[in-house]
């Protein structure tokens, strides 16, 4: 069974009567890493929001099946607890809430959802320290309020840490490379690569090919004007790097 199956997905913003996704078809099998590339305004981020269940978007047509369940029927937090994780392009600041507290709430929500015992503070601390070490994140960073006062690189590392702790089955990474210098990009990419396994699917959303030098995708899709225009292997990314998106948008990107 496919991990994620998107069929003819159409979606628009609730406030404006403007269709942004105009019929997306995509299948991700367990263990596969897919990359969606596209120019600004192609609908890439909208796709990630619609998958994660953000308010304000209306699905007008099509269906999304995740792990055999109708994903669109679920609330955002239920999707998260089912195993859908979105690494945000712009991680949100929550003043006054320590990162550890936040992450423990999140993990215990998931455990409760699956009828498992909640972790106590000590068990949790042990788990997080282990995962954080790999991402070169010290205790001080974990104690600080969620994303408050973090640099761009720290925010993205924090997203990957959350991903590592929550162990989702589908990871959607929205422009995870944006705002990162090369060292930070390496750390983040290593973190993501470490999470690749035969059960987990990944969807990388990116504008640039650069990220794909570090995280090698199995498939690359080009998205423009709300549709997947072309699909291929990782060589497609290199072709795009050379030619740009002009072929798909009618103008140079």
């Amino acid at each position: 069974m496919a991990l994620l199956e998107i069929k003819n997905l159409h979606a628009s913003l609730e406030e404006e009567d403007k269709e942004i996704l105009k019929g997306i078809d995509l299948v991700i099998q367990p263990g596969e890493v897919h990359a969606i590339m596209g120019p600004n305004g192609s609908g890439k981020s909208t796709l990630s929001y619609v998958l994660a269940g953000r308010d304000g978007y209306e699905v007008t047509e099509g269906e999304v099946t995740f792990d055999g369940k109708d994903l669109l029927e679920l609330e955002a937090n239920e999707r998260a607890n089912e195993g859908v994780f979105l690494a945000f392009q712009y991680p949100v600041e929550i003043p006054g809430v320590p990162g550890m507290t936040f992450l423990r709430e999140a993990l215990n929500s998931k455990r409760k959802y699956h009828g498992e015992e909640e972790l106590d503070a000590m068990q949790f601390l042990k788990l997080v320290r282990e995962k954080a070490k790999a991402l070169e994140m010290g205790d001080d960073m974990l104690k600080r309020a969620v994303n408050v006062g973090f640099s761009g690189g720290e925010k993205k590392r924090n997203e990957i840490l959350q991903m590592a702790v929550l162990e989702p089955t589908l990871c959607v990474l929205d422009e995870t490379d944006s705002g990162l210098d090369i060292d930070a990009l390496k750390i983040v990419a290593d973190g993501v690569n470490a999470l690749r396994n035969e059960n987990r699917g990944m969807l990388l959303i990116t504008h640039y090919q650069r990220l794909l030098d570090y995280i090698q995708p199995d498939f690359v899709h080009v998205m423009a004007a709300g549709k997947i225009q072309r699909s291929g292997g990782k060589e497609l990314a290199l072709e795009l790097e050379e030619k740009g998106y002009a072929d798909f948008t009618g103008k140079a990107a």
Partner: peptide
Amino acid sequence: SEDQLFYCSQRGLS
């Protein structure tokens, strides 16, 4: 903010 609420629910919080 809506952003904060969505961020939390995406991490599984009701």
